[in-house]
Structure formats: C-alpha cells, structure tokens
Design a protein around this nucleic acid. Structure first.
Length: 492
RNA sequence: GCCGCUAUCGUCUAGGGGUCAGGACGGGUGGUUCUCAGCCACCAAACCGGGGUUCGAAUCCCCGUAGCGGUACCA
C-alpha cells in the first residue's frame, strides 16, 4: 500500500492517463458495471486523461447489438461520456496476428481435446486434488496424432503456454503478490471456431490502446496473472491494475444478472424515477470514500476528489435505503420547474395527463407535494386525486377520521357540510382566506382542527396523509371541492 | 477439491500503537404541525477469534475461523 505506484496522485504525465471500461454486451448495464465505468471515468477526468469505451464482444453467441445500445444509453443517462470507442469483434485481424506470433514463438500451441475429454480431465484433476485441471497434454502431440484428429474433423483451440517462473501481480488497491504458475493452466486463447477469447483480446487491446490503468472488479483478479503471462510472451507492456471490490447483495453475495435479475439493471432505477446524480453519488460510495464528513458529492467534486488510493478492499452491500435517501435529496434539490419537468413523464405514463393541464397548475402540485418524493415515480400515487375523483376512500382512514359509529359519522357529515358552506361563500378562494375561515369555524365550534381537516382531507383525496390541505383545496379549485364533499357525504 | 481475496455499528464507511472508536443511511424516542413527509434534539448499535510484539493493540506480526470471488472453447 505504501509503495503504491504513481498514477494515483497528480504528476507530470497526467495527460497520458488512459483507462477503459470494457463491458461485454450480454445484457443491460448493471450496478457493478456502472460503478466500474464511473471509477474509470472519474479517474480519467481527474487526471485529464482519456476514457475509452471498448465493447468486449468476443463471445458472439451471447453478445447482442441491442445490449450494446442499452449500455450506451445507460452510460449517457448517467452522464458518463467516452473519448474513444472500439468494438473487439471488428478487430479480429489484430488478434490473429498476435496469435500467429505466439504460435511461432512456441508460447502457444493447438489443443485438440474435445469438450468431453476436457470434462473428464477436470473431474479427474479435482478428484486428485490438483490445483489445475488441464495438464498441457496437447503440447506433446505426435504429428500422427494431429493428423488423426484433423482427419476426424476436430477443430483445435489455441492454448497459451504458462511460464515456469512466478508471475508478479501489482495491484493499486490490493497490493502486490507473486502467483505460482503451477496453479495456472494453459488457458484457451482462441476457440475452435477461430474466435479469440477475452484473456487474449483484453490484454492485447490494453497494450494496443495504450491503457495505463485497468480498473475493474475483483472477479477479474484470477485472470490477471494469465493476462500478464500473455503480455509477457508477446513482449507487450502491462498496464497497472486496480481491482475494485464487488458490489454485494444483502446476504453478501455478488450482485449479478443471473441471481438478481433487473434488480441490478441501471435502467430499472431510471424507470422507477431515480436521478442519475443520485445513482452516481450512491454507487461511488460503494467502495470509495473521501473522509468521515462528506456523503453528498457533486460530479465536479467527485472528479476533483476521486483517488484510487481511497478505494477499500472489501465488498460493499447495495443498500437501497441509502439510494432512496440520496435520491430524495437530489430531487429536493431541483427547483420546482425542474422537478415538474422530471415528473411529467411519470404522470403521462399513468395516463393522468391529457395535455390540457396548465403548467402553472402542475408546478403548483409539485410545490405542494414538496419534499415528499423519494422517487419521481412517487408522484403518481401521491397526486392521482388531483387528476381524477375516481379514488378509493382508504378504509382505515375512514374508520379513524370519519368515525366508526353512527353518531360519529353524523358529526362528520355535519362538519363537512359546514365546511362546504363556508367554502361556497368564501369571498376569495386563496390559502389565507380559506385557512382563516376554517380555523374560525373549528375554534368557535370547539371542533378539533385535526378532526375537521382529516375529515376533509379524506373527502378530497381519499387518504389521511399528503400535502397541506389548504394547498390541495386551492389547487383542486372551488368547483371540484364543492363536488367532492357531497360525494364523500354520500359515501359516509 | 484447488487458487485467490477480504474481515470496524444491521448497512456504507472514517480512523489506525494511548480516541468516550467518529460520521452517514436505516431503526427508536421526543419536539414542531391539519395529516404525512421534512426539520430539530436525543438514544441504541461495531473493531471476527486466539496467540504474540509492546508500558500500551481495533491499529503491527502469526495462526485460526468465517465470508466471498474464480475455477468455461463467458467476460
């Protein structure tokens, strides 16, 4: 930790920092991917470097164009932009050249084993408690054997020959260590269909693209010595590595598409009304911290303060409660007009808006709702009654505030009737006038303010909670209010 | 099985040989109020275990234990 390589601090070669985010387009962008992208992007921005988006789509069977575009879209939504862009499947010829060199130098060889044979080897190795399964047997194939395999129609894979000497892995986050090469097996670097594999293309591209720092999840830790071995065999420059701890679920397991479905999809959070700045702020604090004082960081502050040296070593649990807190913080930080803009699509999606609504009225609703939104989507249940009088009267609220006895219901009817009359005759339908009139009524008649207000609230909104009732009354308008009160009384 | 990584409140974390082990989220209590939310105040809540080193260890070392990751012709 103390001899952390340079690059985490400001130095003269800053403008040469080059990092990349290398997703495989096999699904949506997930939380962990977003964080990897963010860390790389922040690191680049902090050092005035270059952030590269590289699509690692060598697994043609699983990669899709659709996924690729979803990833672009999600990154853009987060505000993460890239300076350069590459797609590995378009770079086949580059890799082919390197494979040739590896084959010619004897650092790689063809393997004719079938999947079934490999499976058997694996099972046996495990039973024998061996550290690795494949034993390099195809290195020593006789030419007759090769001819026989070829005649059988077997298509070989290419395997990298692992070195004999320990491989040193330096990691900015985790520190340095030496890996015993006898625990490493001769990895397949080219599939039998001719398509190169991740461990090969990744390290080649890192070198070709002059990547200085590879910032990625610790699930790649075990790949690192393999990639270094390949780079060494090719004489390629090896970037510095920074393996960041995993994002875990509440039971401590790695968050993955496989096990968590769209719970890990960035897009899901977008659809549910989370703000990109909240997502960014949330995700950056999963593994990174600045000090013991600050939780809220603007993007500019993040760029200024981000430092690989302050990334922790242990995994972090994804806590939706904290995301919610950040989200409401950022929602509340937006002005009412901005919040209104953000919330309109959610009203539209619910079919609550028919485009005849007055902008000022909508902003009035948003202002009345105030700081009650955790997500933008919350606007729907919280404001539905403004757009329609077809809502349920919450049974629990009714029982508590309208009364559970004939006598109490009678009293409620009376109060609502009085209020209706007061509102009908009110000289000015504004908050101050209405408030004064209603307080006058309750206080003079010895009626509890809360009782009158809650009775009215349920009559107008169906619920026992919500924004200030006077705001609601004014926003609803006199006609609507005078319509809803009798309707509520009928229901009593 | 094998290889590797990690270990401070429930969660995110600060700290790092001598601190009342700090903050934040969440939780709880009280106050404000027409409700809810908010806001304010307060409360509970942690150094995985065992050995060393040391006057002193949560902090350094060793050993355990546990958890996690990887173990593919995925990335």
């Amino acid at each position: 930790m103390n001899d952390t390589p340079s690059g985490t601090t400001t130095s003269a070669v800053n403008d040469q920092i080059r990092v990349r985010m290398a997703p495989s387009p096999t699904g949506y962008l997930h939380i962990g991917g977003a964080r990897t992208a963010l860390f790389n992007w922040l690191f680049a921005k902090h050092h005035n470097g270059t952030f590269i988006l590289r699509i690692d789509d060598t697994d043609m069977a699983r990669s899709t164009d659709e996924s690729m575009h979803e990833i672009y879209e999600a990154l853009k939504w987060l505000g993460i932009d890239w300076n350069e862009h590459y797609v590995q499947s378009e770079r086949r010829s580059v890799y082919d050249g390197y494979v040739q060199r590896l084959l010619e130098s004897g650092n790689a060889y063809h393997c004719y084993c079938t999947p079934e044979e490999l499976e058997a080897i694996r099972t046996q190795a495990r039973a024998d408690k061996q550290p690795r399964s494949y034993d390099g047997r195809c290195q020593h194939l006789t030419s007759e054997a090769v001819q026989r395999f070829v005649a059988e129609g077997r298509k070989p894979t290419v395997r990298i020959k692992m070195p004999d000497r320990p491989i040193r892995v330096d990691d900015i986050v985790l520190g340095s260590r030496n890996i015993d090469p006898t625990t490493l097996e001769d990895e397949v670097i080219v599939r039998s269909n001719g398509m190169p594999n991740y461990n090969l293309t990744s390290i080649i591209d890192d070198a070709e693209m002059r990547i200085t720092h590879v910032i990625r999840g610790t699930e790649h830790l075990n790949n690192t010595p393999k990639q270094i071995a390949i780079a060494n065999a090719l004489g390629l420059k090896v970037p510095q590595f920074a393996h960041i701890p995993l994002v875990l679920d509440s039971s401590g397991r790695k968050m993955s598409k496989r096990h968590h479905g769209d719970l890990v999809a960035v897009n899901r959070y977008r659809e549910q009304g989370y703000l990109p700045e909240a997502m960014l702020n949330f995700v950056v604090r999963l593994g990174w911290s600045y000090d013991d004082k600050q939780e809220i960081f603007s993007v500019d502050e993040l760029i200024e303060k981000f430092d690989l040296a302050r990334i922790g070593k242990s995994g972090s649990v994804f806590d939706i409660k904290k995301l919610e807190w950040l989200n409401s913080h950022y929602i509340n930080q937006r002005s009412v007009p901005a919040r209104t803009d953000a919330v309109i699509p959610f009203w539209q999606k619910e079919g609550l808006l028919n485009s005849t609504e007055d902008r000022n009225w909508l902003e009035g609703i948003v202002a009345a709702v105030g700081e009650r939104l955790t997500t933008l989507q919350d606007i729907v249940p919280q404001t539905r009654y403004f757009f329609t009088d077809e809502f349920e009267y919450d049974p629990k609220a009714v029982k508590k505030w309208w009364g559970n006895s004939e006598e109490k219901r009678q009293k409620t009817t009376e109060i609502l009737t009085h209020i209706s009359q007061i509102l009908e005759k009110i000289p000015q339908f504004d908050i101050e006038t209405i408030e004064a009139a209603i307080w006058k009524y309750t206080d003079e008649n010895n009626i509890k303010r809360v009782a009158a207000m809650q009775a009215l609230r349920i009559a107008l909104t169906g619920a026992s909670f919500g924004p200030s009732l006077f705001d609601i009354v004014v926003l609803l308008g006199k006609d609507e209010v005078l319509k809803r009160i009798p309707k509520a009384i009928d229901h009593l």
